[in-house]
């Protein structure tokens, strides 16, 4: 497999990569400061950041960055991540990740797993942002709203945190050749043929090499 420029395809543009890392960075920072706020055993994280009080404010500000990054990512990727009928078939076969399959439906830009991840992040991201806003000033809300916000915040963190681990694995060692999509933005042609064949075909027909 050669990785020369001819044999690579630009799969993401710089704006996508910046948005991705802003979202990922703020999300991870929130995750780790959040763990530090929730678990005494993770107290070393707030300790490194100058104490729980400082960590609280960093968590809030990072959450604000996350909110904007999420809003941008939603607008940017919602079309690429819209479900199509073949996605059900892809899911039914575990995307070929779990057992041997021969007739996976060819993927356009993102496979059904990636789409699911995207929508989980959108839905639970919205929940975590809204509940976080309530937790910022719980006294301004009816007590039931304030109380449930804490539970919803923790549930969303659980979901996003767990999906993040899946995403990390599949975006790195689980799928060699994928990580470059979010660094240089170029993946090998063979990678594209494996992961987004229909998109590659369209691209080859339409636009010149980028």
């Amino acid at each position: 497999m050669s990785d020369t420029l001819q044999n690579t395809v630009r799969v993401t543009d710089p704006i996508e990569r910046i948005a991705h890392w802003l979202l990922a960075g703020s999300c991870l920072f929130c995750l780790f400061t959040g763990l530090g706020l929730m678990f005494r055993t993770w107290g070393f994280i707030p300790a490194l950041l100058g104490g729980l009080y400082a960590a609280k404010w960093m968590h809030i500000f990072s959450g604000v960055v996350f909110a904007f990054a999420l809003a941008y990512a939603f607008v940017m990727w919602k079309k690429d991540c819209a479900f199509e009928t073949d996605d059900a078939k892809w899911i039914a076969q575990g995307g070929g990740y779990l057992w041997k399959t021969d007739n996976l439906p060819p993927v356009y830009k993102y496979n059904a797993g990636q789409k699911l991840f995207f929508w989980f992040v959108v839905v639970f991201g919205v929940l975590i942002v809204l509940s976080g806003l309530v937790m910022w000033n719980p006294l301004a809300f009816p007590v039931a709203v304030a109380r449930w916000s804490y539970a919803i915040h923790a549930l969303s963190a659980l979901v996003i945190g767990s999906f993040f681990v899946v995403h990390l694995y599949l975006g790195t060692i689980g799928n060699p050749g994928t990580f470059q999509a979010m660094t240089t933005g170029r993946c090998s042609r063979a990678w594209c043929e494996t992961h987004c064949p229909r998109w590659l075909a369209d691209r080859d027909k339409g636009s010149p090499t980028t």
């Binding site: 070929g96 041997k100 060699p176």
Partner: peptide
């Protein structure tokens, strides 16, 4: 299962 390797010149992926 091992990592999901890329297959050259194969449409559809595995």
């Amino acid at each position: 299962k091992g990592p999901h390797e890329v297959h050259e010149n194969k449409q559809g992926g595995e």
